[in-house]
């Protein structure tokens, strides 16, 4: 079984539109939407949620009013400023449990906390695992790991050979959580100064974790000179550029209509995407 992880560093370069189009092209596979903050892939499919399971984040401290002697030790020990006058601020509490260790009155317990939902959906292109992190919750790296684990399990059960993972932006915990054991990491970039800068950082991240990367350049004709620079950078790092997608209003219109743009056959973007998909399959 192989897993293709699609990331970008910079947000809004077209990851999700591309993943949706790959999902149309691929044979038997499962999709994993690992942008657990703001998952969007389901918006391009006719999908229905068939099962939901809770995602437990780290526990949160709770102080018993009856037992609390107001000594203030918990407040002194808390490194996150989450306790004020024996009251726990749930948003700041990171669940370390140090307050419980510090409390001599035995007034603090750590309670289970549901931080989000993992959802299993059926789509016209196959099964999909995605998630909704609760509003203003942390621990999203762990949720990403859970989504990937569930997707892998389903793929194994169904004997599917491929997992396509739509990753989050950035280079932090969620992205790091997407990289472990990925067979191929596709970095989607765009030919802007910011796109180049963010691509270089995310490629360093993939290298840092010994991943195998490929690059595709979206809207390449917005700036042919920046596109040339991206190709030079990739060449010097020995990273293949698997394709260039031209600026094409078809992509934008498909997004507005909530469908994968590849379904608009023969558009310049679709033709380029077919080539990219072929290259990726060969690499996998």
């Amino acid at each position: 079984m192989k897993e293709l992880v699609v990331i970008s560093g910079k947000g809004g370069t077209g990851k999700t539109s591309l993943v949706a189009s790959f999902s149309v092209l691929a044979g038997e596979k499962i999709m994993a939407d690992c942008d657990v903050d703001a998952s969007n892939l389901h918006l391009l499919f006719n999908s229905s949620v068939i099962r939901q399971i809770p995602f437990y984040g780290l526990k949160k401290a709770r102080i018993s009013e009856e037992l609390c002697v107001k000594c203030g030790d918990c407040e002194d020990y808390c490194h996150f400023g989450a306790i004020d006058n024996s009251f726990v601020d749930g948003l700041s509490c990171e669940g370390c449990g140090v307050c419980k260790l510090a409390c001599r009155a035995g007034a603090i317990e750590m309670v289970e906390h549901i931080a989000g939902q993992i959802e299993f959906s059926d789509t016209e292109y196959g099964p999909m695992v995605h998630a909704r992190l609760g509003v203003a919750e942390d621990n999203s790296g762990k949720l990403v790991a859970e989504v990937r684990k569930m997707a892998r399990q389903i793929a194994e059960d169904k004997n599917y050979e491929l997992i396509i993972t739509d990753g989050p932006p950035g280079i932090g915990c969620q992205v790091i959580s997407c990289l472990s054991n990925a067979d191929l990491v596709l970095v989607v970039t765009e030919p802007s100064r910011t796109g180049i800068h963010d691509m270089e950082r995310v490629l360093s991240l993939v290298e840092h974790f010994d991943g195998r990367a490929a690059v595709c350049i979206n809207k390449w004709d917005i700036s042919a000179s920046n596109t040339g620079e991206i190709e030079d950078i990739c060449y010097s790092k020995n990273i293949p550029v698997v394709g260039k997608i031209p600026y094409d209003m078809t992509v934008y219109n498909a997004l507005k209509n909530g469908i994968p743009y590849i379904r608009k056959k023969d558009s310049p973007a679709s033709t380029a995407t077919l080539g990219i998909w072929d290259s990726l399959l060969k690499m996998l």
Binding site: G11, A38, L133, A136, S140, G170, Q174, K256
Partner: peptide, 24 residues
């Protein structure tokens, strides 16, 4: 971007937040 801790820590304590969106 996002709605988890990096975004929350960045907006905490501000007087106002401008949300930039696109019509998609």
């Amino acid at each position: 971007p996002g709605t988890s801790c990096p975004a929350v820590k960045s907006v905490e304590g501000v007087d106002f937040c401008i949300l930039v969106t696109e019509p998609t």
